[in-house]
Amino acid sequence: MAPAPITPEYRLLAELEAAFDRLIERLEVLVSTHAQAPGATWAMDQEDAGADWLRRALLDFWYQDGQDGRATRSHVGLVAADEALMAGVREANAAKADFAALLRRIRADAADLIPELKAVLPFRHPALHDHLRGQGLARLHLKQCWRAVPLAEAPLARVRLAWYRSGRSIKRLTVREAQELLLDLDQEAPHVRIQQRQLAGIPDGEPLARVQDQAPLMRANLFYREPLPDGRGRRALNVALPLFVPSPDGRLPDHNIPPASPPASRTRALRSDARLESEPFLPSLRIYRYRDA
């Protein structure tokens, strides 16, 4: 009997499994490189920012029970890195970029594979799977796999860390677009039917707004010892993972210690918020009507 033909979907899954293996391997090498010649480290809200902390931070790929699927966990810290360690970060980020590119292909061409790969990938690395079971964690969090490890391009004079709240993302929608979003929900659910009737009762030309609260982020402001070739003397970037800083002497640059938790509320509301009604028109989709002018 002739062997079954290899389908495009199977080939994509095999490519992703190989990319996941490379990603894990590059991160393990990165952690090992740091352990062999450790420079100074600092981690927010951690007394011991050693090799175990770094490995947990870089290999935190899992959803916790009850975790919002849109949210990712942060591991804010600083790592003084020599040339070998910086090269390791770049190689790990290249593996993450390859993994992300394959995921985009799968989402576009074979989205039905996503649940399968979330179940299959952890078993390829027994140590990771044992950690998954032992810690009571849930399924694989793909975004936490491919998010890049932040690094500074050149030695720094200082780093200033601060929580940043961007408030809300407000996207303008048409009634037709809102109808299409409602069709993706359970059509038998009473609350969905109520919202369908509400939407049918407004003019087709009325604009609507979909509101998404943005999670607070840690922002790092980097101040270089010397201007970069393009003339820049500073840079700002979000840091959800440890920031690797070039440091030939193994020391960290001057840095502040931000609060362990973000501020309880936004310090400034977006002006567009005031144009929306106070209560959502379609609660299941976070869609609001605009106030009368």
Rank of each mutant, 00 (worst) to 15 (best):
L27A: 13
L103H: 13
E83Y: 12
Y63A: 08
E188P: 00
R73F: 07
L282G: 00
L276A: 04
H131Q: 12
T33Q: 15
L199S: 02
N256Y: 03
A162H: 03
A157G: 01
P38T: 05
L252W: 09
F99K: 02
R55D: 06
E206F: 07
F223D: 06
A215D: 14
P253I: 08
K96R: 15
Q198G: 05
A51H: 10
Y164C: 10
Q135A: 15
Q187M: 08
A111F: 04
S265G: 03
R107K: 09
E153S: 13
A92R: 13
Y164M: 04
I114N: 04
V239D: 06
Q198T: 02
E206G: 11
G69L: 05
A110D: 01
S247W: 13
Y288P: 01
D249H: 10
V79C: 10
R168Y: 05
E226P: 02
S166W: 03
F223I: 05
D112G: 13
D230T: 08
G201D: 10
F123M: 14
D249M: 06
P3N: 02
L182K: 04
P253T: 10
M86T: 15
L285W: 00
E25N: 04
L27N: 14
R55A: 10
R197C: 02
D130R: 15
L185E: 02
V149P: 01
G66K: 03
A2I: 09
V29N: 03
Q187D: 12
L156N: 06
L58P: 08
L181R: 08
D21W: 01
L102R: 08
P207T: 07
V89A: 11
L217S: 03
